[in-house]
Amino acid sequence: MSSETLEDRYQTVGSPLLEDPKMRIRSVDVSYANNQAIFDVNLDIGKNQVISMIGPSGCGKSTFLRCLNRMNDTIDICKVTGQILLDDEDIYSKNLDVVELRARVGMVFQKPNPFPKSIYENVAYGARIHGLTDNKVQLDELVEGSLIKCGLWKEVQDRLEEPATGLSGGQQQRLCIARAIAVNPEVILMDEPCSALDPIATATVEELISELSENFTIAIVTHSMQQAARVSQRTAYFHLGKLIEVNDTSQVFTNPEHALTEEYITGRIG
């Protein structure tokens, strides 16, 4: 290791580590070809908690999130080193099937991306490919249950066979969340799930996130500090690929420990 990177070592302030977490992230570096995007991140994600990741654009928070279910595998030049454990199992181990991992760690994307199929087929897709149900009755129940959990059932129950692309933006995003929870994942990753939505749709989705946190572990990337404050128990602040501070959300927004966090919160950088 060169002397420069040694000097670059830094310490995350606050309390990044937890007792008995769902996921442990240890010394994770990510680089695209020759550009390093994430530097030495150590973080624990607690069970049935919402953790939000905030930071200025390009700080690497989305890249980091995508490491957690290996979506970065789809980018050839992306290289991840370090250790990420899900229930003490290394998700980057050779023996681990990435397909099973993604069934356990689901993902919701920035822009709603329903498949150009019917609403029903969108929600049923995960159950089909993972063989979660044995017959049509079970599948119907699963679809209905997932849509109820996302508060979408009342709105779409009469038009389950209509194309999902006909829904409004907010409905589409809730459908994508329903699609994700239909697989019954342990962790749900959300990459700026409300950035393409209007305020009313945002409020519905935020409410949904709070409700889901009772049963699921959720990691959410957001560029809205208010949103982070509203939905999450813990908040992690990223700056230029480094994890600067992790603390309880209330503390981050009222009494940040690190100067950079404070500057971001008060709007001097961003």
């Binding site: 993604r102 689901g106 991306n113 150009p116």
Partner: peptide, 21 residues
């Protein structure tokens, strides 16, 4: 690519993503 990402995010394998979507 968003369609591919959606399928992969659900835990579809590469082959499933291609054949189904």
């Amino acid at each position: 690519p968003s369609i591919r990402q959606a399928a992969m995010g659900m835990g579809a394998s590469k082959v499933q993503t291609v054949i189904h979507h």
